Computed example of a mutant assay.
Amino acid sequence: MKYPILTQCPVCNHPLHAIKLACGHCRTTIENHFELSKLALLSPEQLHFVITFLLNRGNIKEVEKELGISYPTVRGKLNDIITALGYDTRKKPEIDEKKVISMLERGEITADEAVKMLKQD
Results as ranks from 00 to 15, higher is better:
A22S: 09
C12N: 03
L36Y: 00
R75T: 12
H17I: 10
N59L: 12
A111Q: 07
I30H: 00
I69G: 06
L85P: 02
E105D: 07
G86R: 05
N59G: 13
A111I: 01
L21S: 10
I30S: 02
G58P: 15
R106N: 08
L21K: 11
A114G: 13
R57D: 15
N59A: 14
G68V: 03
L36N: 04
V50D: 01
A22R: 12
L16H: 12
K38W: 02
L54H: 02
E35C: 00
I30Y: 00
E35D: 09
G24K: 04
E35N: 06
K61Q: 14
S70V: 00
P72L: 03
G76A: 08
G76L: 07
T29N: 09
G58H: 03
R106A: 15
L39R: 09
L36G: 00
I30T: 09
N13I: 01
I82P: 14
L55Y: 12
L47R: 12
S102K: 10
P93I: 01
K61L: 07
L36D: 06
L39Y: 07
N13T: 07
P93H: 08
K119P: 07
L85D: 05
Q120K: 13
T83N: 10
H17C: 06
L67C: 02
E62N: 11
K91E: 11
K98A: 13
P44G: 04
V74E: 10
K92N: 04
A22Q: 04
S43D: 08
N32M: 00
C26G: 01
K92R: 12
I95M: 08
G107T: 03
T7M: 00
V74N: 12
Y71G: 14
P44L: 04
L39V: 11
R57W: 01
C23R: 05
K116Y: 12
P44F: 03
L39N: 05
V63H: 05
E113S: 07
H17P: 01
Q120Y: 11
T89D: 09
I82C: 13
T52C: 14
E45F: 01
K77E: 07
C12M: 06
H14Y: 06
T89M: 11
M1E: 03
A40Y: 02
N79Y: 05
G58T: 11
A18H: 02
M117S: 11
K98R: 06
V100R: 09
L16F: 15
Q120W: 10
R75G: 12
E108P: 11
E105Q: 09
M117I: 05
I60A: 15
A18R: 09
I69D: 03
P93G: 07
V63P: 15
H33N: 06
A111N: 04
C23A: 00
E35W: 00
K99G: 05
N32W: 00
Y87M: 14
E97L: 11
V50E: 04
G24M: 06
C12R: 00
L85H: 10
L47I: 06
G86T: 03
V100Y: 10
S43A: 09
F34V: 01
I5H: 00
L78P: 15
K99Y: 10
K20W: 02
K38R: 14
E62R: 09
T83K: 15
I101R: 09
F34T: 01
V74D: 14
E66N: 04
R57Q: 15
N79Q: 11
E97T: 02
Q46R: 08
H25M: 03
